[in-house]
Design a protein around this nucleic acid. Structure first.
Length: 657
RNA sequence: GCCCCCUUGGCGCAGUCGGCAGCGCGUUUCCAUGGUAAGGAAAAGGUCGUCGGUUCGAUUCCGACAGGGGGCUCCA
């Protein structure tokens, strides 16, 4: 007798397997079943059930089902590669968020090329067609070591599991083997792979897969260890689910901010300047300035004072701040000048601290909030640069708040509300936060950490957004909150960071005079809301697929005259709108209307106004809004302008399309 | 930095099994006067990323380098 998730139970004959159970419920379920969860542990369908087991059948459409499919497909990939490159050492092949990968060490140091993917896929399809069973084998550690004695990566894993098992470490679970023996899955006489399982019953259950790319990847992610050849792929339960996924990839490609940036003439990366150093063209600069202006006005409303600091400073400043000690590999190399050594600044905080320290502060001054669009330079290895989301010259919307310790909690609470308000104004509405707490190696006093962490936690609780605690993920000097957002197609981006700094005030010997007429140490909050202006710009372009809301659009309105006799009226409408600070341009009648409308649409301009005979005589315009199915005729100019002004003030519309 | 891929007019791409290169968009000019996603014609525009090698001859084959892209690592 076993129990099912719906509360019912079923009686089976002794020795029945999970597959027998599925079959007893329905032949359809038996056909869809891939694996089973028994007492919270995933098992194969061939698993023999025991009396009283709580059982849940795993089918293809679920996340767990897909994990099983992907993991099993990874094994097929490994078998295919081993058969095509005899002598290959294979490492690990897990499922990942949207697919799976497998890492290989090819004989003679060979490398995969893109062309190999097709050959490997073809071999995989043969293996699937053969409908090879996945047969689970359980071995002692010693048996495992001899079974895989020609597979050094496998034996390394087995030894790791054995040692962890002996020490009772959690690592055992992490690697995926949960008892003091090892399990393996055999597909054929010659192909067997170390694995926790579960797997689909046979390769015939697979087939909706695609290999996507090849990459180099270091064994265990350690660049000092051998570089392996990785193949990425994905797999689904059905052809339609696979094709939906491939469409989502196309959608992400369509939204790529680098592509949109080129199409809309917003920015580019001149090789003459250097990798990761963008230039913003007039339209891109306008968008960026609009973002920054709005941010600055919000900061002023929230009690921030704007400051300005230089781009380079003497090495002694970064010695005091500790950057040269802790962050040197992220810094640009130094410049020598008149006997002193200068560095481009990697962060703005030391300079803001110097502004604070220029005079003595009373508790009455606090909190002090210094804000700056500070451009910092960080050395990023060439391989990690990626459009605007990963650059070497970064403009942070950076501020440092200096407060008395008893002000911290309140300051963080209002700050977090501010963060969310600002992001919402940019159309981002789904937030998830991460609270990173004290790591094992830390500086400072335990009570300081506890107090700062509690203040961060209570800010999160009062902001009412979902958050997870990342135990031990904080920097060595401070706990922090990272705010993540989901964009229009559900991708997650890390944006804002709020960090309570317990160290810099001390390193710079900062102080304020308290009500007790004694000097105290202020606490400091680092915070950036966009994170980096460049990165945020790129994320917004992807979120909106280039269809920026009217307040951000570089050209808000384009006016088209129907025929050349309407040109002067078009100019007149342009003057009227421009006088109301609306960003508008005109394209006169030098080609047919359809072509000009099309071009304006491709430029993703929010409103296209068409003016012809009827409009000239009655002072109206035809309004073609981005995303609307049909244009609106005979709208009075003032009516349109007022509507537009309201929309700009509300930072809304028109709908993207 | 490491692995894989890419580099042909402003942009997107063909192509040359080695014999001095083609399309579409865009640009310019002329014609067309067109009420909502491409009107027509003509012209201009490329030392095929750079340097070296093989060859009678290289944009094509080989090598190095540079730039870009996808990953690894790291992070905003």
């Amino acid at each position: 007798m076993v129990s099912l998730p719906d509360g019912s139970s079923r009686t089976l004959t002794l020795g029945s397997t999970a597959y027998d159970l599925a079959l007893s419920i329905g032949s359809r379920l038996a056909k869809d079943a891939l694996a089973v969860e028994v007492s919270g542990e995933q098992r194969d369908l061939s698993y023999e059930l025991h009396d009283g087991d709580p059982v849940r059948i795993i089918t293809g459409g679920s996340n767990e089902g897909r994990e099983v499919i992907r993991h099993s497909t990874a094994h097929v990939l490994a078998q295919a590669v081993v058969s095509l490159w005899p002598g290959t050492k294979f490492a690990i092949g897990p499922f990942i968020a949207d697919g799976f990968y497998y890492d290989f060490d090819l004989p003679g140091g060979a490398h995969f090329t893109d062309d190999d993917l097709g050959r490997i896929e073809a071999r995989m399809r043969e293996i699937i067609k053969e409908n090879q069973p996945f047969v689970r084998e359980e071995h002692t550690f010693d048996e495992g070591l001899s079974l895989f004695d020609d597979q050094p990566y496998k034996t390394e894993i087995i030894r790791g599991v054995r040692d962890a098992s002996l020490s009772g470490d959690d690592l055992v679970k992490e690697i995926g083997l949960s008892t003091n023996e090892v399990s393996a899955y055999r597909n054929t006489e010659s192909f067997v792979d170390l694995c926790r399982g579960p797997h689909v019953p046979a390769t015939g259950r697979l087939g909706h897969f695609k290999l996507t790319r090849v990459a180099g990847a270091y064994w265990r992610g350690d660049e000092h260890r051998p570089q392996l050849q990785r193949i990425y792929g994905t797999a689904f339960e059905s052809a339609s689910a696979l094709s939906d996924y491939l469409h989502r990839l196309d959608e992400a490609e369509r939204r790529d901010h680098r592509k949109i940036g080129a199409e809309l003439d917003l920015f580019h990366f001149p090789p003459e300047i250097g990798g990761g150093l963008p230039v913003f063209h007039p339209k891109g600069a306008l968008i960026r300035q609009t973002m920054e202006d709005f941010s600055l006005s919000m900061h002023r409303q929230h009690g921030y004072q704007q400051v300005w600091t230089p781009h380079i400073a003497k090495s002694t400043l970064f010695e005091t701040s500790g950057h040269l000690q802790w962050y040197a590999e992220g810094m640009y190399p130094p410049m020598e000048m008149e006997g002193a050594t200068y560095y481009p600044k990697p962060m703005n905080c030391p300079m803001h601290i110097l502004i604070y320290k220029d005079k003595q502060h009373s508790y009455r001054d606090l909190p002090l909030r210094f804000f700056e669009f500070g451009t910092v330079y960080r050395f990023e290895r060439s391989g990690v640069l990626h459009g605007l989301t990963r650059v070497r010259g970064i403009t942070q919307d950076d501020a440092h708040i200096f407060c008395a310790p008893d002000q911290l909690a309140n300051e963080l609470r209002t700050l977090l509300e501010f963060v969310l308000d600002l992001l919402r104004a940019f159309g981002l509405t789904e937030f998830e936060a991460e609270l990173a707490t004290r790591p094992e190696k830390f500086v400072g006093e335990q009570w300081e950490w506890d107090e700062a962490t509690d203040a961060l936690r209570s800010a999160l609780e009062s902001a009412n957004i979902p958050f997870v605690v990342a135990e031990g993920e904080g920097a060595f000097y401070a706990p922090k909150i990272d705010v993540h957002v989901r964009d229009a197609i559900g991708r997650r981006w890390q944006l804002s960071t709020l960090q309570v700094d317990l160290q810099l005030p001390q390193r710079f010997d900062m102080s304020f005079v308290g009500a007790d007429n004694v000097r105290h140490r202020p606490w400091m909050i680092h915070r950036a809301l966009f994170g980096s202006v460049e990165r945020f710009f790129g994320i917004l372009l992807e979120h909106y697929a280039g269809n920026l809301p009217t307040w951000l659009a570089p050209v808000q309105v384009r006016i088209l005259s129907v025929r050349d006799v309407h040109d002067s009226y078009a100019d007149e409408v342009c003057r009227v709108l421009r006088a109301r600070n609306i960003r508008v341009d005109v394209e006169l009648a030098d080609e047919p209307l359809g072509g000009r409308v099309r071009r304006a649409k491709l430029e993703k301009i929010p409103y296209v106004l068409v003016v012809g005979d009827a409009d000239v005589s009655s002072g109206t315009v035809g309004v073609n809004a981005r995303g609307s199915a049909s244009p609106e005729r005979d709208v009075a100019i003032d009516t349109f302008a007022e509507r537009l002004e309201m929309e700009i003030a509300a930072k809304s519309g028109p709908d993207p399309s």
